[in-house]
Design a protein around this nucleic acid. Structure first.
Length: 444
RNA sequence: GGGGGCGUGGCGAAGCAGGUUAUCGCGCCGGCCUGUCAAGCCGGAGAUCGCGGGUUCAAGUCCCGUCGCUCCCGCCA
């Protein structure tokens, strides 16, 4: 196997080195004293006259290369180096490679727009995002997405373990089902369609189809002109829908189990990333302790904590609630349920005249989840549609889900970027999106 | 939709009771150095101070507009 060099390359005296299979930097300690070949990006160069030290970076880590003479390539160039792995107390990490042969695979230009080998805390968010292609090379920045990838993995793994089927639904929708605001319209041949703000109706359709339990990991689009550290106009939604539930309490139970799996997995597999950000996930046992309170009770607590009467749960109130939960229950999270009917969509299952079987999950001061039981009974849905002054015509497809029998069900959605942001204590949710889209930014 | 703050070399900042060649750190280029650890030392390049207008003998600095960024509120994942 010669995965990195053309087969027709002319034979040279260095072909011995080139015949070496690439070794990942993280595996070098198993090759002590042996000849290896490594590939990666030049992270840092220190020249000391007749000897140079080059820090090489690959997907698995960093290693010091020791070179004779100068390094004739700039930082961020892609190289392949062959040499002998040796132990040296003077080397960072105790290991280094004494290089016999180097191949410059791709020379980097000199005008790096943002530093890759420095602490990104010293960069402005704007610089990070404007030069996203380059800033992602920064190991600390890239570590966000290593961790995020595992959030996705543990989420999906958990859902499957409970018998959920993964679905992918269309992001192009023909009608403004959830009300006119907040939808992006796009040209669709001779007509106009919209980008889905949630897979809500399709999830429910799959409940009635007989799958009973479904989840979807997909993008959601919100055409809202908000500019805050917690909003994106395109985000990844971890959507869940489950049949045969009794109330939103069943859904909170499910979310607790999901969060436990995610937190446990991250604590095991992403210790390094958490350490880089000086962050930690809540203890697994504590997730069971997340307090649950009604919307009314939440307002009371916020009023007491904030020292003044509140009627709405605003962002400051969400922070106060989580502070309270940390103090009283040891975990910065809280479930709020029984939201008023007027604060929830028409499809939310009513508990009584005033409130609904719906809930939010707040984590570290931020709403990461909204969900609830949905109306599954045809006549109740008709009443609700009338109550919200919606038209049957625009909801005809949706109504069909319930006309021929749909079991009691409900679901929720976790914002992937928000969860990532809060786990790592990132100042802005945009840092947790690879290529964030906000009101003006649609590039890179 | 409402409100606040900020735009100064590639990056991060100082300068802003108006005044002569706009300063510092990192990075970059050149030189010295065989054990560096954000290497060190010497030298150098690089900025029409976001843009437009106004006030003034004089504007990075004051005023108005504009564009951009960022934060708070509303709404939301």
């Amino acid at each position: 196997m010669f995965p990195f060099w053309p087969r027709n390359r002319m034979k040279t005296c260095y072909d011995l080195w080139r015949s070496l299979v690439r070794t990942l930097i993280s595996e070098l300690k198993e090759h002590l004293g042996r000849q290896v070949s490594v590939c990666g990006w030049v992270h840092r160069i220190r020249e000391l006259g007749k000897i140079s030290f080059v820090l090489l970076r690959d997907r698995s880590g960093l290693i010091q290369l020791v070179l004779d003479g100068k390094a004739d390539f700039p930082v961020e160039s892609v190289i392949s180096a062959a040499g002998t792995v040796s132990e040296n107390e003077k080397a960072p990490g105790g290991l280094e490679i004494h290089v016999a042969e180097i191949e410059l695979m791709a020379r980097a230009a000199l005008d790096l727009p943002v530093p890759v080998n420095q602490d990104p805390d010293k960069l402005s968010l704007d610089a990070i995002l404007e030069h996203r292609i380059i800033s992602l090379r920064n190991p600390k920045i890239l570590s966000i997405f290593r961790l995020q990838s595992n959030i996705l993995k543990f989420f999906a793994t958990h859902m499957r373990s409970e018998g959920f089927t993964e679905i992918k639904t269309s992001k192009l929708i023909g009608t403004e089902t959830e009300g006119g605001t907040g939808l992006f319209s796009v040209d669709y041949f001779d007509s106009r369609v919209y980008l889905a703000q949630s897979p809500q109706f399709y999830k429910q359709a799959m409940i009635s189809s007989g799958l009973e339990r479904v989840f979807e990991i997909g993008h959601a689009y919100r055409a809202e002109k908000h500019e805050t550290p917690r909003h994106l106009n395109e985000y990844v939604s971890l959507d869940v829908e489950m049949a045969f539930i009794h109330s939103e309490q069943d859904l909170m139970d499910l979310e607790v189990r999901i969060l436990k799996t995610i937190f446990k997995g991250l604590a095991e597999e992403n210790r390094e990333e958490l350490e880089i950000w000086n962050a930690s996930v809540p203890g697994i046992d504590l997730v069971d302790q997340i307090p649950r309170m009604t919307h009314d009770r939440a307002r009371e607590i916020i009023s007491i904590e904030g020292g003044r009467k509140v009627y709405e749960i605003n962002p400051e109130g969400e922070r106060l609630l989580c502070d309270w939960a940390l103090r009283e229950h040891g975990i910065e999270a809280v479930f709020v349920y029984s939201f008023p009917r007027k604060k929830r969509p028409f499809y939310t299952y009513p508990l009584d005249q005033r409130s609904t079987m719906s809930f939010d999950c707040l984590f570290r001061g931020l709403e990461i989840t909204t969900g609830g039981r949905r109306i599954n009974e045809y006549s109740m849905l008709m009443d609700s549609i009338a109550r919200f002054s919606l038209s049957h015509e625009s909801l005809s497809d949706y109504i069909q889900i319930f006309k021929y029998g749909c079991p009691p069900h409900g679901g929720f959605a976790i914002g992937l970027e928000r969860l990532t942001q809060k786990i790592l204590s990132l100042a802005n949710v945009k840092e947790a999106s690879l290529f964030p889209r906000d009101r003006r930014r649609v590039r890179p």
